[in-house]
């Protein structure tokens, strides 16, 4: 660590990346919690929002409206994949559901390949994505600060939704005991659709910053985020919202830390090390760092 300024930079980028990772993991976990589906096609929701940015961005609309429309696209696709592909296999084994989501993921990627382009395209992005500011001698990227703020706001908003609204309560209740949730009169399909909608919303928010960071969108753009979401949620705890958030932030600090301090040739093995950790976690502590407080009832 050279100086305070380096440390603050590290802190800001770790927190901002960690926040994004937390949102990625949450999008996966919120669906897994109630339907036991690990949605491989979650990355393609990020892709959809990315192409939304590209396509709507060509219009004269202000960028913020473009961003909102892109997020809406991700939500619509999330609801659509639930209705068309996942609802019919809801009672099948987790393995079947996982294979289905793998197929949905391939399908959407190749649709983008066929109808848009295999080549990366650069969507219109506002200048804040490249600018930096200097505050008391410390240089930070504006986008990092915004990402940090947005992720924290999103996490708090989600927490309020899950604690205060009856739909949010139903989501948590359904993760505890799905059958009983139906028996208190909650419409099961609605709850699951809500989970998918939130997943799409999170994917959309993530897409803004992820694509803002890399500056381009291509059919496989969602793959890296979905891998990150896998790692973060397995490490943090697949059935725990808190775990997903924790896992996301841990991974954020870890990636930025490794990038900063690890020699380049070791860094090449970063993904391999991360996924080796995933395997070890699954074996040693399959419930993740944050154990669900209570063993789940059999459904």
């Amino acid at each position: 660590m050279e100086s305070i300024s380096d440390f603050v930079q590290y802190l800001v980028s770790s927190l901002s990346v960690g926040g994004l990772y937390a949102l990625m993991a949450l999008g996966l976990v919120i669906v897994y919690g109630i339907s036991q589906l690990i949605n491989f096609a979650y990355g393609e929701l990020i892709m959809v929002a990315g192409y939304g940015l590209l396509i709507f961005g060509r219009s004269w609309l202000p960028w913020l409206i473009v961003a909102v429309m892109s997020i809406l696209c991700a939500i619509i696709f999330a609801l659509g994949m639930d209705q068309i592909a996942f609802k019919p296999v809801r009672n099948a084994s987790p393995t079947t559901m996982l294979i289905t989501s793998f197929a949905v993921s391939t399908l959407l990627q190749n649709i983008a390949l066929l109808f848009i382009s295999p080549r990366p395209r650069a969507p219109r992005l506002p200048s804040i994505f490249v600018k930096s500011v200097e505050v008391v001698g410390i240089r930070v990227k504006i986008v990092d600060v915004i990402a940090l703020a947005v992720s924290i706001v999103a996490l708090i908003a989600l927490q309020i939704f899950l604690r205060k609204s009856i739909v949010g309560l139903s989501l948590r209740a359904a993760a505890d005991d799905f059958t009983m949730t139906r028996l208190v009169g909650v419409n099961a399909n609605k709850v699951i659709a809500t989970a998918f909608a939130i997943s799409g919303l999170l994917a959309g928010i993530v897409a803004l910053f992820w694509i803002g960071r890399i500056g381009q969108v291509l059919p496989t753009v969602g793959f890296q985020p979905v891998l990150i979401a896998f790692i973060a949620s397995v490490v943090g705890g697949l059935s725990s919202i808190k775990g997903a958030v924790l896992g996301g932030y841990i991974l954020g600090f870890l990636t930025i830390g490794l990038q900063t301090w690890l020699p380049q040739d070791v860094n090449a093995y970063r993904d391999a090390i991360m996924f080796a950790i995933v395997i070890v976690m699954l074996l040693v502590r399959p419930e993740g760092l944050i154990r669900p407080a209570f063993s789940r009832e059999t459904r």
Partner: peptide
């Protein structure tokens, strides 16, 4: 179940 599949994928 799904843990196995994720592990093989990893």
């Amino acid at each position: 179940g799904a843990s196995f599949t994720i592990a093989t994928f990893a």
